[in-house]
Write a protein that binds this DNA or RNA. Structure first.
Lengths: 340, 340
DNA sequence: AAAATTTAGTTAAACGTTTAACCTATAAAG
DNA sequence: CTTTATAGGTTAAACGTTTAACTAAATTTT
């Protein structure tokens, strides 16, 4: 029913080889025949079957996109935006992106995503932290891999990483520029490298402006990085440090939790305490006041990850890209210069 | 390099046909040979190539998932959860889901998603409202289609739809059960059938409890359904109706906007005004107070949409499914029975 | 015991491409 | 005028499956 290269060949009165070569702009085909073929292609609205193509070319033109279930469901819209970015860029390279979430725990290579088992992808993008076993399994199968927002502790891979240190600096420097000198840091699970890097950025910024670093102004013992732990951390911090004028939370969820605690104690944001977050996932109008944050260009990260994969596919050389971040100034930070 | 059916056949000392038949549990193959083949399959870790399979079977085992750019980027996490549900179910049927966002405006069939042009899907799931032109184009290509959370004005299709009328009823009845008699309705773009249905549910509930319907307590003229229009609608409603004790917003975004307006006028939620939303996309802790809402089982909708597509693929008969919704009672609605 | 049926496999065609190897006519070189 | 090169195609094999049609041996039926 669906029209194939045969139909085109027949109607154009040439062999199917000629059609194929014409479509690939081969020099062997004269301009005249090329035009003739193209006309028929247009008339019949012919498109090569990607499946047949894939079979003979031994390539799938598919990219696997891997993240854990939790990351897909609960860290909206962070990873979904990265995914979408990868879709955009993949389209330009005529690739499809096959999403596959994996369980948070991973035991055996048997449970690798289908597209890996069935050799249905030319490469895989891994977004966020995943069980290391899966990396080992992919390694064994020699599947090209690009990591996004995560880098395994050992090995040499292509990766798209957020410049978290720079982000931590920018956030802290923004507070400093607005006159703040007693700045609390709300960190979560310090095992996660992003959090560590943001913390490092915080320290670098303090040092740069000769502000003494005080371990009392830092909470790094929360085991999670959600709203609840932000609330809890703010409580600890503000009870212990009466002189804090600003808080830097290492993600927006924690910042929201901190804001909630601050409000519940009857204090005003930003008049009494300024708050800045990280990730910029809180939509513009959905916190009160709108939360200043560090924007991470998620779609761009997805785009970049596909580029790195394409690059690796041809060069076989891993490459790392650091994605710069941007300060988004809204109304949760008060300029207190000259006030105290 | 990658092992094929030939390798298995060779090592098991049978023909490739035998391997294939054994893998499909064909009766022609004796249990002994079957076992022998399976052993080799296991040893070599063989998996049939889905591409070769697709070519001979003339089926892709792919499902296209279509939504507009806007829906993917701005209506988080609604459609992404539906998408994930479809991925789950597709996996069980050994299908892949190819996501493709389309621009909000659509001109010509040339710009159909690649997977349609290249005949790379056996069917398409369309989530949310899309330009009607695209439906026409798909119709012309005779591609099986399942709609989710949208139904085109004409034609007979498989569809997974939210029981919005029921939802409107449940929300309104909840308010009524809690003693509210003056209930405002915040609707958005009434062109969208979901909104109309939710409004209808509101009316049905009022009627059921013999509460007079008052057009003054209703805003249906907002052109969008976001936070901002919720804010605006609440303003109109509360200025006009001093006796309102509760608001039913036809989605959570508008509910949040309404809450913001209420708070800004110095009133308390739920003490002064109760608010209930719809969709339950606001995460448990991220509004203050936590917003009561009507939960829509998004993942289940995705699952159901794949089931309908599978069903259609074998039966060629369109089928519609109404998805029931659930009241999620949190703290934005006050029980005022006996208070007035 | 011959014929018919059943069992358990094999052979080969088909799916729709790509492309190396081959062919034929024409142009250029010797 | 013969040989060689070039231009512009065509033929056929290959990719990895599935499956209809075939076959040979074993078993059952007559």
């Amino acid at each position: 029913m669906t029209i194939t290269i045969k139909d085109v060949a027949q109607k154009a009165n040439v062999s199917i080889a000629t059609v194929s070569l014409a479509l690939h702009d081969n020099v062997r085909i004269s301009p005249g025949t090329k035009k003739k073929v193209m006309k028929v292609v247009d008339e019949l609205n012919y498109r090569p079957s990607r499946i047949a193509r894939g079979l003979v070319l031994q390539q799938t033109q598919n990219i696997g996109f891997l993240l854990t279930n939790d990351h897909f469901l609960h860290t909206e819209p962070f990873y979904t935006h990265i995914f979408l970015g990868s879709e955009f860029e993949a389209r330009d390279h005529n690739f499809y992106v096959l999403l596959n979430t994996i369980p948070n725990k991973f035991n055996e290579c048997d449970h690798l995503p289908r597209f890996v088992l069935e050799k249905n992808v030319d490469g895989v993008i891994i977004a966020g932290k995943v069980p290391l076993e899966i990396v080992t399994c992919l390694e064994a199968d020699k599947i090209p891999v690009v990591f996004v927002d995560f880098y395994p502790p050992s090995g040499e891979y292509s990766a798209v990483l957020i410049d978290n240190v720079q982000g931590g600096e920018k956030a802290t420097e923004h507070l400093i520029a607005y006159g703040h000198r007693n700045i609390g840091f709300i960190g979560g699970d310090m095992v996660h490298p992003s959090i560590r890097d943001r913390f490092q950025g915080y320290q670098i910024a303090l040092e740069k402006f000769k502000i003494p670093f005080n371990m009392k102004q830092v909470v790094t013992r929360e085991s999670t990085t959600n709203r609840k732990s932000g609330y809890h951390a703010a409580e600890i911090l503000l009870k212990k440090n009466k002189d804090l004028t600003a808080l830097f939370a290492c993600n927006d969820a924690m910042a929201l939790g901190a804001m909630q605690y601050i409000k519940e104690t009857g204090k005003k944001i930003p008049e009494d305490i300024s708050v800045i977050g990280f990730d910029d996932v809180v939509e513009d109008l959905s916190s009160d006041p709108p939360l200043s944050s560090i924007r991470v260009p998620k779609v761009e990260m997805g785009i970049e990850s596909v580029r790195l994969l394409m690059d690796y596919l041809s060069s076989k050389r891993p490459k790392k890209v650091l994605i710069p971040v941007e300060l988004i100034s809204r109304n949760s930070v008060l300029n207190i210069n000259g006030k105290y």
